[in-house]
């Protein structure tokens, strides 16, 4: 055997718990060159921007500064208003909380297809019959004064009746 001794009694089994968070630090993230502009537009004008790569014939939503497929720089002229409506590309009902606790009322998360992008968000104001792939939905924005320049400036997406 490779190891001559092992901890063989429970009383010997010991683990080291530092008593504080192992990484007692945090991170601050910028929205980035693209995100700064994307969220400014959401915050100030309730508009969702995409950026179009003519070469790949693809419109990214959320907008970015480069096309990941061909590396073309997506300049100001490539940024377009893609509207606030899309369709459900996929959805799920989440029966656990972030920390794995079960919960009665599931959160409904959707991937909303807008142009060639998939905006990941919550679904609200819906009935069971609305839970279907390809159903049209639209963004419901928070009141302007509550917006901070983040994805939650959109409260949720809701079915278009």
């Amino acid at each position: 055997m490779a190891i001559m001794e092992r901890n063989s009694r429970n009383i010997d089994n010991r683990y080291w718990n530092p008593g504080f968070k192992a990484f007692p630090v945090k991170n601050v993230y910028t929205a980035g060159a693209a995100g700064q502009r994307f969220f400014e537009e959401i915050k100030n004008n309730s508009k969702i921007l995409g950026s179009r790569c003519e070469k790949c014939e693809l419109t990214y939503v959320p907008a970015r500064i480069y096309c990941e497929r061909c590396f073309n720089r997506l300049e100001e002229k490539n940024w377009i208003d893609v509207g606030t409506e899309g369709t459900i590309y996929s959805y799920t009902l989440l029966f656990q909380t972030q920390n794995g606790e079960p919960r009665e009322n599931p959160a409904v998360m959707v991937a909303v297809r807008i142009a060639d992008g998939l905006l990941i968000h919550r679904l609200g104001e819906f009935s069971a019959a609305d839970l279907e792939i390809d159903k049209p939905v639209k963004a419901k924005f928070k009141p302007k004064e509550k917006r901070k320049g983040c994805i939650e400036d959109i409260d949720y997406f809701k079915p278009i009746k």
């Binding site: 991170n27 993230y29 929205a31 980035g32 995100g35 959320p62 996929s90 959805y91 799920t92 009902l93 989440l94 656990q96 909380t97 972030q98 920390n99 794995g100 959160a107 998360m109 959707v110 991937a111 990941i120 968000h121 919550r122 983040c150 994805i151 939650e152």
Partner: peptide, 17 residues
């Protein structure tokens, strides 16, 4: 950190989708 984490949901929703 900007597009997914703010929802504070269990990350396995991605597998559900």
């Amino acid at each position: 950190p900007f597009y997914i984490r703010p929802f504070n949901e269990n990350p396995y929703f991605i597998a559900g989708l």
